[in-house]
């Protein structure tokens, strides 16, 4: 079997195990107390971490576009509008 097929099959098995592992872990953790509070806060913390990684991996162009996107998101709370503003600013800055 070629390397490519090995990569595909092993990555698929590992990725599904990770996703299913989280599903089963979530059912096992307590529903009250510190664990529950931590799990409730996890989505927001993960998304903020993801945005931090994306912006810190970029340069001044990404920081400016990120600030504009944040301002648009803050006042509009609108997903497509925020995406359009971010793309438009980065496109303009990179020209």
């Amino acid at each position: 079997m070629s390397d490519t097929w090995v990569v595909i099959l092993v990555l698929a098995a590992a990725t599904f195990s990770i996703r299913m592992g989280g599903v089963l872990l979530g059912q096992k953790l307590p529903t009250t107390g510190p664990w529950a509070r931590a799990l409730n806060a996890l989505p927001g913390c993960l998304i903020v971490s993801l945005v931090s990684v994306l912006l810190l991996s970029g340069g001044p162009n990404e920081w400016i576009a990120g600030s504009v996107a944040l301002a648009v998101a803050w006042f509009s709370r609108n997903l497509p509008l925020t995406m359009l503003a971010g793309i438009a600013v980065i496109f303009f800055l990179r020209r």
């Binding site: 993801l50 994306l54 576009a65 990120g66 998101a73 803050w74 997903l79 925020t82 971010g86």
Partner: peptide, 11 residues
């Protein structure tokens, strides 16, 4: 990046 900024805002 922009999409996740918008989603963070709503959360």
């Amino acid at each position: 990046t922009a999409a996740f900024i918008a989603i963070a805002r709503s959360l």
